[in-house]
């Protein structure tokens, strides 16, 4: 098989896998949330209600493709596409198993950061193009929140990068042969995880779409397929962040007995469930609290982490 064909197959496998995962995860989330709340969740359609997602998809496809008359049409259409493109592009650098990676870039980590920064545009443009007050407020919140948390996200990663000595994800996985970075880089993990929740604006840090204040935030005016893109984008984003955490802190595909891909998936799924657990447990902070927490807690912690890691490495190296 030529390299191109191989890449193409990988790309399709990854896309298919990630989208199915994200789609299926909507069902998992609803069932899990129900579990935490002493309910059943969707349990009617198919075994265990598994086809609920399919039904929802059919429904959403059938909806009228509606663009509000007051919206800025081209931008309004562009925004949801953007989020899909950026999150899916981040998938490219993730190494699921040895050899199962679309593009094993030597700047993998940076690429991930870049893509997640681009994702901000989607939300900001959606908020702007909707031309409605709730959407605009949501969009503005999203921009400030995502830009801030990106800083801590990037900083928190640097410890890992320093320890692995490379931006390439496969190298980082390899560097964790003896010890998963979650042990030495615990502060980094904590900051990255929290920043990850904020980046994907999952609850409890879902202020851009806080429904009890902003209706649905930046996607208030969206419905049908375009809304589905936002929804899916959120879940793919969650998958990507979980996969990154697994790769950076939990040894990637490494694990005994089972094949590497399975290990990778199990770890990722576990982290995603953690996201849901958080959602089920915590109330949403106020917006100022969120920003305060970021700049006054996360920033010092990640800087400190960086300094300590650097110092330790310096000492060791010396």
């Amino acid at each position: 098989m030529s390299d191109t064909a191989r890449s193409l197959v990988t790309i399709f496998a990854v896309l298919l896998g990630a989208l199915t995962l994200a789609g299926g995860f909507i069902w998992v989330e609803r069932r899990l949330l129900a579990l935490f709340q002493e309910r059943w969740g969707p349990n009617r359609l198919g075994p265990l209600g598994l086809f609920q997602g399919v039904a929802d998809m059919i429904k959403i496809f059938m909806k009228e493709d509606w663009v509000p008359p007051f919206a800025d049409k081209p931008v309004f259409v562009l925004a949801p596409m953007l989020i899909m493109v950026t999150t899916l592009a981040s998938l490219a650098i993730i190494a699921f198993a040895p050899g199962l990676v679309v593009a094993d870039l030597n700047i993998g980590v940076l690429f991930f950061l870049a893509m997640s920064s681009l994702g901000v545009y989607s939300v900001a443009l959606a908020g702007w193009a909707s031309n409605s007050k709730y959407a605009l407020l949501g969009g503005m919140r999203a921009v400030a929140q995502m830009l801030s948390y990106e800083v801590f996200m990037g900083l928190s990663l640097m410890g890992v990068v320093m320890m692995a000595g490379s931006f390439r994800l496969t190298d980082i996985v390899a560097a964790q042969k003896s010890l998963w970075f979650c042990i030495p880089q615990l502060p980094g993990l904590a900051v990255f995880f929290i920043a990850g929740v904020a980046e994907t604006h999952r609850s409890p840090l879902d202020l851009p779409e806080a429904e009890n204040e902003l209706v649905a935030g930046y996607h208030t005016e969206y419905s049908g397929m375009k809304f589905a893109l936002f929804l899916l984008g959120e879940y793919v984003g969650m998958t990507v962040v979980s996969a990154m955490i697994v790769t950076l802190f939990f040894g990637g595909w490494a694990g005994p007995l089972l094949p590497p891909v399975v290990w990778f998936l199990v770890k990722t799924l576990f982290l995603m469930c953690l996201f849901i657990w958080l959602r089920a447990s915590f109330p949403r902070p106020r917006y100022d609290q969120l920003m305060l927490f970021g700049w006054k807690v996360l920033l010092p912690v990640s800087l400190l982490n960086l300094a300590v890691t650097g110092a330790v490495l310096l000492v060791r190296g010396a």
Binding site: L35, F36, Q37, E38, R39, W40, W277, L278, A280, S281, F282
Partner: peptide, 17 residues
């Protein structure tokens, strides 16, 4: 809080089928 929520996953459902 996390622990309490987790515990709720293992009690009887209130949903009436």
């Amino acid at each position: 809080g996390l622990w309490i929520v987790l515990r709720h996953a293992f009690v009887k459902r209130v949903t009436v089928e």
